[in-house]
């Protein structure tokens, strides 16, 4: 396989390993792990529980650091950035959709969507948040608190929040894990629809092979190795 041009690669991992120190000794989660994701690509990472999918995701997003190896995110070598610079990079280029939505319960749907815009210091955060709430069909529920919304609605607010900053890369960690299959399907449609519309790079972690099959690439994480699979 030819190497993609550097400007096309938005996330890459080279010879990445991750070790943990535990009471029982050292635990090696990954060793010599390599990965390249190109702009606009949608990638599914699948694997059994405990394989380290979430650790891999938090390293790729600059939340955690590898023990050895190099990770590049949106053109920057993460090892060369300090915590503040990594946070700024995240604010500028990265968004998340979580399994348990993670909306702040005391903020209205609108304020939850505004949150990352406020972190970036954007002036018209309210109008932008309104726009994204209408994109996910929740314009009329803007003032509702998360507790007043259904699970599916909460995840749609989380999707609006994720797209509001127009990220280069969107990490989605089991986005339908807490939803019934019907709601899950409509959420997935919305996620992929917005992804295509915004030309965002999507990195998706899931157990669900059907969901994984909607991505352009699939990687299996097993025993510390990433293997390309076909649908």
């Amino acid at each position: 396989m030819d190497s993609p041009k550097p400007d096309q690669v938005v996330v890459s991992a080279h010879a990445v390993s991750k070790k943990f120190h535990t009471q029982g000794g050292e635990l090696q989660l990954f060793e010599n792990l390599n990965l390249e994701v190109r702009r606009g690509e949608s990638l599914a990472i699948i694997g059994p529980s405990g394989a380290g999918k979430s650790t891999l995701l938090s390293m790729l997003a600059g939340l955690d650091q590898p023990s050895t190896g190099m990770i590049r995110l949106a053109g920057s070598n993460l090892a060369e950035l300090d915590e503040t610079a990594r946070a700024r990079l995240r604010a500028r280029s990265v968004s998340f959709v979580f399994q348990s939505f993670h909306l702040l319960p005391e903020l209205s749907a609108l304020d939850n969507v505004r949150l990352p815009l406020e972190i970036r210091g954007e002036a018209d955060s309210e109008q932008q948040a309104q726009h994204w709430l209408s994109q996910v069909g929740l314009a009329s529920r803007a003032e509702h608190l998360p507790g007043q919304l259904s699970g599916g609605e909460q995840q749609r607010v989380a999707i609006a929040r994720a797209f509001a900053t127009r990220p280069d890369i969107l990490f989605a960690d089991e986005p339908t894990g807490n939803l019934d299959s019907e709601t899950g399907a409509s959420i997935v449609d919305q996620l992929f629809g917005l992804n295509a519309q915004q030309q965002t790079t999507l990195i998706l972690i899931t157990h669900d092979s059907q969901l994984a099959s909607r991505c352009s690439r699939r990687l299996q994480l097993r025993q510390g190795q990433l293997l390309e699979t076909t649908a």
Binding site: A61, L63, E83, T84, A87, R88, R90, A91, R92, V94, S95, F96, H102, L104, L115, P116, I119, R120, R161, T165
Partner: peptide, 15 residues
């Protein structure tokens, strides 16, 4: 929890 979410969403530890 709030701090964790804010930092994941891009807030710096300083903020």
């Amino acid at each position: 929890y709030e701090s964790a979410l804010l930092q994941t969403l891009g807030a710096t530890p300083g903020q």
